[in-house]
């Protein structure tokens, strides 16, 4: 009986919290290109955005597609190598879900692998843009925070968990070939 009431109360609280959050979206700080953003796990500094068909390797694709590319500097602040930046830096297209972006390491002009801890790197993240949607003059990049839990609630395992966005940055989109 008490357990049933407790469960009911818990779901009621959780539901109303969801409602409240939907009605009052959290204010995400607006930041500028060139400013360092602290996500918890990463330092991200967004630089520039451009659109074109040639990926950062410099080799044109055999079947060119519209690409949106964002240049940035990142530092992995955690104690282990990681490459899951696509969950940290996101852009959105109107009414479409974009595919997972590809990251290129500037140093090699080639696909980026793991980012080692405390090693600043410049990279370019590349999204394929839908062919029938024009690329806007300005895109909004959302940077999501992550927190470290020493013990998660299920296994007591340590790990990084996604949190709310920590910054929104508007970048003008340059047109490149």
């Amino acid at each position: 009986m008490i357990a049933g009431l407790g469960g009911l109360a818990a779901s009621a609280i959780s539901f109303s919290m969801t409602l409240y959050e939907a009605a009052h979206p959290p204010q995400v700080p607006v930041m500028q290109a060139g400013q360092q953003i602290d996500t918890g796990r990463w330092f991200v500094t967004l630089r520039t955005a451009r659109t074109g068909t040639v990926p950062p390797t410099g080799v044109p694709q055999s079947q060119p597609v519209k690409l949106v590319m964002v240049d940035m500097d990142v530092v992995n602040r955690s104690a282990t190598p990681n490459n899951v930046l696509y969950r940290v830096v996101t852009i959105s297209a109107p009414a479409q879900k974009l595919d997972m972006p590809t990251a290129y390491l500037d140093r090699d002009k080639y696909l980026a692998g793991y980012f080692n801890p405390n090693m600043p790197e410049r990279l370019t993240m590349v999204w394929e843009w839908p062919a029938d949607v024009p690329v806007p003059d300005k895109i909004t990049v959302t940077v999501t925070g992550q927190i470290y839990k020493r013990r998660d609630n299920l296994y007591g395992a340590s790990g990084w968990y996604d949190r709310e966005p920590v910054a929104r940055v508007d970048l003008p989109v340059e047109k490149a070939p």
């Binding site: 104690a79 282990t80 190598p81 390491l105 090699d108 080639y110 692998g113 793991y114 080692n116 801890p117 405390n118």
Partner: peptide, 10 residues
């Protein structure tokens, strides 16, 4: 200091 670096994939 306990920070891990993995074999390079470059």
């Amino acid at each position: 200091s306990g920070v891990r670096y993995v074999l390079t994939d470059r």
